[in-house]
Amino acid sequence: MEHFESWKDLLNPEFYIKMGGFWLILFIIFAETGLFVGFFLPGDSLLFVSGIYAVEIVKETFGGTGSNLLDTTILATAVAVAAVIGNEIGYWFGLKAGPALYKKEDSFLFKKKYLFQAHDFFEQHGALAVIMARFLPIVRTFTPIVAGIVKMDKTRFLIDNIIGAFLWSFSLIFAGHYLDALFKTQFDIDLKSHLEMIIIIIVLITTVPIIAKFFFGKKKEEVKQDADISK
């Protein structure tokens, strides 16, 4: 079992997999939205790396099925269910206590600006935001809360929640599993030996859209303000 050595371990998906395996992975995915404090946890990279270790994870937990496809499907399904439950709790919290969050002071575990970003994302994309947010760090943590705040239809939210959770879980976990197999057979490269580079690439892919949106959105706002002043 892994032991905590530094804060860098908290950003390393492999650390969680080796420390707690199947059940810790599910808890982290649940916490990202169900406890809305997991926005700093490695969600996307955790799923991709979990796909690489999928057979080992399921074997250590349940003894394995003897089928790589079935083992990977079991892991992806369990993660999707945890993600659905987390979002439903986030929605319920937004429905009951969401408005009070706009008055809450910032803390280490809560940043009001993320709530506003999720709200803008939800307003821009409507019901599809619940599905799309799954693939965006930070935004996926607060989108279900915003959906609850704006009183999105419960049935519509549940459907979008399920679709988004399964798309997110299966795409990333299966990508990790089968890309690892592909690189081993075609290029004799073990992705487990290059996890740091893989994590950096995933972080860049998932965060660049958010950074770009923030940067260009800020520039657009500045241009608008200058135009208003000139009038």
Rank of each mutant, 00 (worst) to 15 (best):
F62V: 09
D106R: 11
A181C: 03
M19H: 14
Y16E: 13
K220C: 06
V84N: 12
V81F: 09
I159T: 00
F108G: 02
G21R: 08
V37N: 02
I211S: 11
T72V: 11
Y53N: 04
K113R: 01
F216A: 03
F122V: 03
W168G: 00
L109M: 14
T207R: 03
G217K: 12
G64I: 04
G98K: 06
V208F: 12
M132N: 14
K111R: 15
L75K: 04
L109D: 13
V139P: 04
E221T: 05
E56R: 15
G86D: 00
G164E: 07
I17Y: 01
F170A: 11
I210D: 03
V203P: 15
K112M: 09
F216T: 05
K59H: 15
V203W: 14
L167S: 10
I52M: 13
R156T: 13
Y91H: 04
R134S: 11
G90M: 05
A97C: 10
F166G: 09
G38Y: 01
T206N: 08
L191V: 13
H3S: 12
A31P: 04
I138P: 02
D188L: 15
S193Q: 11
V49G: 06
D153A: 11
G164I: 01
Q117V: 13
G176H: 06
T77E: 03
K104E: 07
L46I: 11
K112P: 09
D153L: 00
I131Y: 07
L115N: 10
T33L: 02
G98P: 00
E2L: 13
A76Y: 08
I85A: 02
L24K: 00
L26K: 09
I163W: 12
F4C: 05
L167K: 01
V55S: 10
V146N: 04
A31I: 08
A80N: 00
H3Q: 12
Q186E: 14
D71F: 09
D188A: 15
E56N: 14
E14W: 05
F36E: 09
A118L: 08
E32F: 00
A78T: 01
E5W: 12
E32S: 01
Y178D: 11
G98C: 06
L95N: 08
G64R: 02
K96H: 14
I52P: 01
F142W: 07
I28H: 02
F214I: 05
I131M: 15
L204M: 13
D190Y: 06
H119Y: 05
I205C: 12
V223T: 13
G98Y: 05
A147E: 01
K184Y: 04
M1A: 10
R140Q: 14
I74D: 03
E123A: 06
M19L: 12
D120H: 02
L47D: 09
L204E: 09
F93T: 11
D71G: 13
